[in-house]
Design a binder for these strands. Sequence first.
DNA 1: CTGGATCCCATGAGATACTG
DNA 2: CAGTATCTCATGGGATCCAG
Lengths: 132, 132
Amino acid sequence: MKRLNSKSGCAVEVTLSVMGGTWKPVILFHLLPGKKRFGELGRSIGGITQRMLTLQLRELEEAGIVERTVYAEVPPRVDYELTELGRSLQPVLIAMRNWGQEYSQRFDAAGPLHDDAEASAPRAPDIAQKVA
Amino acid sequence: MKRLNSKSGCAVEVTLSVMGGTWKPVILFHLLPGKKRFGELGRSIGGITQRMLTLQLRELEEAGIVERTVYAEVPPRVDYELTELGRSLQPVLIAMRNWGQEYSQRFDAAGPLHDDAEASAPRAPDIAQKVA
DNA sequence: CTGGATCCCATGAGATACTG
DNA sequence: CAGTATCTCATGGGATCCAG
């Protein structure tokens, strides 16, 4: 993500410049419950590569959203935790989760569309099926 | 955006698959107050190219988030409006805007942001809605 | 005015292998 | 375990020109 301009107008862009991108919101969401180790985080997210996890965590750390703690142990242990600033993103993340849940329910439980459906009835996007 | 997996766990990914990316949240945010024409949208966003605006709007349309209306006039007139599903994203967008505003205040106390979605997106506390 | 068509570059993102 | 280091490919995204 680029453009933390904020000069161009809306505050949404500021937020996006910090937590925008494919992985950051997911990572942050999985950190909401509390600190997690690197591998633990990777497993709970699923589908993310070590490389991306590392890169995104570094950016989040740099933005002051997460705190990285390295323990001088063998085997190595590193954990990541939301800072206070990071925790302040909770409303955004929760709103996202809530919408995703409702959206899934809407198209998962709805079944085939009635043809007398209401005017604003959206076409079911491709995600619906995968939502087991 | 890709990966509509949701099988890996969290609903956040579902939301991201619909409104993820650099421009979609900004576009949606600027559509909150009501329908806008193509050029109008482009101007209010600022910094987006016609190409990206078109592409992103097409994807949003396909996802059932925005509705595109073409008027058979000369000069051509096309406007975009949030569908009911699109409007249901408001809590997410507002949460993003709120966070961006606070963040800006915290670190950039100098520059006030103008907010053209103020009409339907008041900073009032009543937006807390489903954000439990 | 609203975009479609092209060209082109930067970055996101996956796969794999290697290391302190 | 928690990363680096490469390599590679796809996509995002910008610039410009053209068209109904």
